[in-house]
Amino acid sequence: MNKWNDNKAWFMVIPVFLVVAVSAILPLMTVVNYSLQDIFSPTQRIFVGTEWYRDALTDPRLQEAFGRQMLFSGLVLLIEIPLGILIALMMPKKGWGASLSLVLVALPLLIPWNVIGTIWIIFTRPDIGLFGAAINHLGLVFDHTASPLDAWITVMLMEVWHWTPLVVLLAYAGLQAIPEAYFHAAKIDGASSWATFRYIQLPKLRGVLTIAILLRFMDSFLIYAEPFVLTGGGPGNATTFLSIYLVKIAVGQFDLGPAAAFSIIYFLIILLISWLFYQVLLKAGTGEKS
């Protein structure tokens, strides 16, 4: 889209810049500072350069956690984005049905994350939880505290249950923003519902889907509370995602240095992958916009 060139637009951006920068810049600099030092006490610290970074990058358990994290976030995107669009397409566009759907769909998002993990502990227990009991009733052996596969299935189910609504709400709002005239035109042309989706709705959803994909990627990559409460990272290390491993390091040691270096690497990985996503999604749109 062609835009006006005017550096005075900065005045509209300054409030946002200030409000964010006040919380962003100093803590980041402090963590970078920690990551380069061996800290015995507030007054006793030694500069160690890149030692913590080298330790972190060669740590096999960190590499395993990274692999698990990539798999987890990949699955999250593959499941939640299509499912979210599908549900948004099924929701009524107006009337009481639309209001009810909106309220229902938002419910899982509103529960604090530590509570979600706790509720799912009971929900999946074979003796007193609905889900666990139902699975056992089907004759399947299911125990997320013993089997790594079951633990993964449970964490994925919880994640999809919890976060698909975010994609639904964004996609639904994006669909609502498409002018009715487009649909009339499609109807007159006799377009099938697939063609309407592919050539009218999907291109118009590009903006909200870019945000949905980036948000789901970032937040699932940083996921901590729900799987930690539910599985504690186990059985074994099967669901020890990056942030769970990070907290193990940060709490387990008195020294902030290695955990700070880990945090910076972690941050840079998310930054790099998000940037790649963003570039791809920006380009994906340009061909379809015309």
Binding site: P27, V31, L222, A260, S263
Partner: peptide, 16 residues
């Protein structure tokens, strides 16, 4: 702006 959602909170809490 978006990069501010990318920092793992565990270690950032102390400087905050």
């Amino acid at each position: 702006l978006l990069t501010n959602r990318m920092a793992p909170p565990a270690v950032f809490l102390l400087p905050f």
